[in-house]
Computed example of a mutant assay.
Amino acid sequence: MRTLAATRGTSLAALSAMLGRNAAYLQQFVTRGSPRTLDREDRRRLADFFGVDETVLGGAPVRRGFMVPRLDVAASAGAGAFVDGEIVVGADAIDPALAARLGLSEGQAGIIRVRGSSMEPGLLDGDLIVVDLSRRLPGVRGEVFVVRIDGTTMVKRVARGPTGPVATSDNADAPPLPDAPVEVIGRVVWLMRAPR
Rank of each mutant, 00 (worst) to 15 (best):
D170Y: 10
G164W: 02
V52L: 00
R64I: 05
R44E: 14
D48H: 05
L98F: 07
F29E: 04
M18F: 12
S117Q: 12
A194M: 08
F29A: 07
M1F: 10
A167F: 05
V130N: 13
G85P: 00
A194T: 09
L133R: 15
A174I: 08
F49W: 06
G164C: 08
I149E: 02
D173L: 07
A24L: 01
G20D: 08
R141N: 07
T152Q: 15
G78C: 05
V73L: 01
T10Q: 06
D170L: 15
S134G: 15
G116S: 08
F145C: 03
P162M: 15
A77H: 10
W190K: 12
T152W: 00
D92Q: 11
V30A: 13
E86T: 14
R70F: 06
F49D: 07
F50M: 02
P162R: 14
R115A: 15
M192S: 15
P69C: 04
G51T: 06
R63I: 12
A5R: 00
W190G: 04
V166K: 12
A174T: 09
G51H: 07
A180Y: 06
A180Q: 01
Q108H: 14
I185R: 11
E54T: 14
D127G: 06
L98V: 11
P69S: 03
P162D: 15
L98C: 01
A74G: 10
A47C: 04
G33E: 02
D95I: 12
R187D: 02
G103D: 10
R40C: 00
V62H: 05
G151M: 02
L123V: 02
G59R: 09
V188C: 13
A167E: 07
V155R: 02
A93H: 06
V155P: 00
